[in-house]
Design a protein around this nucleic acid. Structure first.
Length: 462
DNA sequence: GTAGGGTTAG
């Protein structure tokens, strides 16, 4: 277009900015913004929001907030989407207090939180294991006239699966479907993953069939879920069947698909098969990344082929391909197990030089090696370092304690919910709040289930 | 015809 003397309009530019950001080429996207300005196609809120989200993902929050400031300076008004992006990234970083502040700031700026905001917050609280706040958000959402939807449902299903409450998760989806909620491939994928993680392979496969019978076409991400599940159940050959099915349907597997299968063979101790598949994929334009490298290294170490592991590591470095903390920790662990502590220390120095660590995994490996060699005093020194870096490794899990909650209130609320006396359950919840009493997780789940039931009409799910 | 929420490899 430019060569033919045409000036792309704002829509065209924004589309390309989005494409670049998706690929992680945020710098190029930002320089495109300069080009836009020089051509007097002024970047708008869509351009900035795209760049801000991309910066959060690929360049870190400092750069992202700089763009927010720039946006203000350029006279482009922040909108609800801008705020939702900021809320989302606080949630992704697990900073739920700050996410709450961002939401409050959104209100101050004159925007009411919408379904995106609430679903983001609900998911964030679920991921943080704070079911009480997740439930409170859901309640608030309902009181503002916003309807829970498939996104809300999927967050709760995921949280239930994480708690190993699979029966409850399944029952929730069945009841939700009866009430008019749309179950989609993510709902199924989440349940399937939950069953696989709890070694209920048959149920997982049954749900896969059920999903397909319903005419839901799984995307690559959902194919990855079933392939991953089969691999973790040491059924990599079956996983490859699904992989071939994916190819037959004309889908292109992504980077993850190949890594999962390579990992599957490594888990089975079949390093040769892993390399055969690796080679097959490389010939088909698969670009191995640092995760591929780490998987292969672990596989080779597991199979006792240390020489091969180190030669792979060296070739990788010579080729200038990136390595990370996991790469080093993988090798350091195996060296410690083999009693080759000097070499392990050398690698630790090397990773320190590259500012990749050491982290808690490095220290744990070193402590194990030293203890095994009877070098207790040195081990204790590293123990101190470990506690400095991550005090939570050994201390008690406070969320567990908080999560245990008050039995009496929890049970009463559980019972009321089972009897569908949600109003009374809510009253009791408010009473417990006033007394500063926390409930157990199952009580919060029951209350959330109640909120899903409260929903009267069905909103279209995109 | 452009931006924001749920599943997602070591």
């Amino acid at each position: 277009m430019r060569a033919n003397g045409m000036v792309p309009d704002i829509w065209t530019y924004n589309t390309i900015v989005r494409g670049l950001c998706d690929e992680g080429k945020v710098k190029e996207a930002i320089s495109l913004r300069d080009e836009m300005e020089s051509l007097r196609v002024m970047p708008d809120e869509v351009t900035y929001n795209t760049l801000i989200d991309g910066s959060f993902q690929w360049r870190g929050s400092a750069e992202a907030f700089e763009l927010v400031e720039e946006m203000k300076k350029m006279g482009v008004k922040l909108n609800a989407v801008t705020h939702n992006i900021m809320v989302k990234w606080y949630c992704k970083e697990g900073k739920m207090d700050e996410a709450g502040c961002a939401m409050a700031k959104m209100v101050e700026s004159g925007f009411s939180p919408d379904c995106f905001t609430y679903n983001t917050m609900i998911n964030g609280y679920c991921k943080a294991g704070n079911l009480k706040e997740a439930f409170k958000m859901m309640d608030e959402m309902g009181r503002k006239g916003l309807k829970a939807d498939t996104f809300t449902l999927n967050s709760i299903v995921h949280a239930l699966c994480e708690e190993k409450l699979l029966k409850e998760a399944y029952a929730l989806t069945v009841n939700a479907a009866k009430r008019g909620y749309i179950l989609d491939e993510v709902t199924y994928g989440t349940l399937i993953m939950g069953y696989f993680k709890n070694d209920q392979t048959n149920k997982a496969m049954k749900l896969w069939d059920e999903m397909k019978e319903k005419g839901i076409i799984p995307s690559v991400a959902t194919y990855n879920t079933i392939i991953r599940g089969l691999c973790h159940s040491l059924k990599t050959d079956q996983a490859v069947d699904k992989f071939n099915e994916l190819l037959d349907k004309g889908f292109a597997p992504d980077e993850a698909t190949s890594n999962i299968i390579i990992h599957g063979y490594c888990l089975e101790g079949a390093a040769e098969k892993a390399f055969l598949f690796y080679n097959r994929m490389v010939e088909n334009s698969f670009k191995p990344d640092v995760i591929t490298c780490n998987i292969l290294l672990r596989g080779l170490c597991k199979a006792g082929m240390l020489d091969k592991a180190f030669s792979l590591f060296n070739t990788w470095i010579i080729k200038g391909k990136p390595v990370d903390a996991v790469t080093y920790n993988t090798l350091i662990s195996v060296l410690c197990k083999e009693g080759k502590l000097d070499e392990a220390f050398d690698l630790m120095t090397e990773m320190e030089g590259k500012k990749l660590g050491p982290d808690q995994y490095t220290y744990t490996a070193i402590i194990g090696g030293l203890t095994h060699a009877g070098r207790t005093e040195e081990a204790e020194k590293f123990m101190e370092k470990l506690l400095e870096t991550s005090p939570n490794v050994i201390s008690e899990d406070t969320s567990q304690i908080l999560g245990s909650g008050d039995m009496e209130y929890s049970e009463q609320i559980n019972n009321l919910c089972t009897q569908r006396k949600y109003k009374e359950a809510m009253k009791l919840f408010q009473e417990s709040e006033q007394k500063g009493i926390s409930l157990n997780k199952s009580a919060y789940f029951k209350l959330m289930d109640g909120l899903l039931k409260r929903r009267k009409s069905i909103s279209k799910v995109a």
